[in-house]
Design a protein around this nucleic acid. Structure first.
Lengths: 213, 213
DNA sequence: GATTGTGAATAGATTCACAGCT
DNA sequence: AGCTGTGAATCTATTCACAATC
């Protein structure tokens, strides 16, 4: 019985973790497991696994546990990973081209089908599988590319305008690597991933013990 | 009055956000602000700003607010961003070389001073400022490079062994992009950033409304 | 008068513990 | 007998509201 409230990102991100654990088990030829089994093998919390799954229905068999392949399939379906998602990368700089080349973005699940960049030099220089268009073409190209997800790897100063262009063009969701909080439209959710913030967290932790212990 | 418990990553990450807001204000020539002013301008929570800061001391003046430059400086110091942090990248693939070239990792605060890779072809192919060494040299090179932070951009299967090598070599913290939870040593904290998990979160959100509204 | 710093209140996430199935 | 699914209990994070202070 699904509920109305959207599940928290924390929960959804853990589903991805569980999925990876199940794939691992499957590769190892294990066809049956339990919340406790997963928890000990992968250092997770058994009750949290059960609670997380409970938000989306019933997945196990009492007294037995979970069938690995079945649960893996159902999680893939739940996360929407049982079909291809076409993505575009906006910003053909270092990070954008790296993502466009990476296996995770050239998989059955996620495919970068094109890039966009303002800078004509960047459009010609990169040696990629995918075409690189001028950013002005976002509005025209996104519908014909049938892209669902936009990946923003532009400088902070260009992030908002490119988000807006992607939203206008009908993109359904955006992964934003620019270090800038975007003014979001409700129909086009954004996930911002700011790598320097993670570096800064580490820098903080380096100093914490010394200064305060 | 600093306390013994380490602050949560949520709090520390928000300090990074606040710092960026302050830099923005400084560039705009604003030299005075308040928690409410920051909150409305940057869509934050005023009480959360005050609570976050309160964990680390007193930063403001009652009835007045905060001096922008002063608070900016104190946050930089608190986060350890008032000095250079030397980093190495392990894994000279797409993402690793992209990071090594990116401005955030060639700044006064964070500098990638070298890369490591197993694969001799990758070591020669990349055209970078920084030297690329064989991963076997991690133990020897880290001390002479005086690197503090290791950035792991290797495949999942190689992540643990390279983390261990970095830890043995005396690295102080690791930013891990490999989609693998690492067995961590208490003295070498790890922050794992799994980009595909964020894509999967978006994929989930694409399906959520349609299936359940 | 204005705004901080903070204890109290609320909301959210995790863990516990056990009833209910298989 | 064993393990899920779940309400209750705990822990953590956020927001509220106001006394303290400039």
């Amino acid at each position: 019985m699904p509920q109305r409230e959207p599940p928290s990102p924390l929960t959804v991100n853990r589903l991805s973790i569980y999925l990876r654990c199940l794939r691992r088990l499957e590769m190892d030829g294990v066809d049956r497991t339990s919340s406790a089994g997963l928890a000990t093998r992968f250092d997770l919390s058994a009750s949290q696994i059960r609670k997380d799954l409970a938000q989306f229905g019933e997945f196990g068999i009492r007294g037995f546990g979970y069938k690995v392949e079945d649960l893996r399939r159902r999680l893939e379906r739940l996360l929407g990973l049982d079909r291809a998602h076409r993505a575009v990368v906006v910003g053909a700089g270092n990070l954008g081209t790296a993502l466009a080349r990476s296996p995770g973005f050239n998989s059955p699940t996620f495919q970068v089908v094109a890039l966009f960049d303002n800078d004509a030099r960047k459009r010609t220089r990169a040696d990629l599988e995918q075409p690189i268009f001028d950013s002005h073409e976002i509005g025209r190209r996104i519908p014909e590319l049938e892209a669902e997800i936009g990946v923003l790897t532009v400088p902070a100063s260009a992030a908002q305008e490119n988000y807006d262009a992607l939203a206008d063009a009908g993109i359904a969701a955006v992964l934003n690597f620019a270090p800038r909080r975007l003014v979001e439209r409700p129909e086009v959710p954004v996930k911002t991933v700011d790598i320097l913030i993670f570096m800064e967290e580490l820098a903080f932790r380096l100093g914490w013990r010394d200064d305060n212990a």
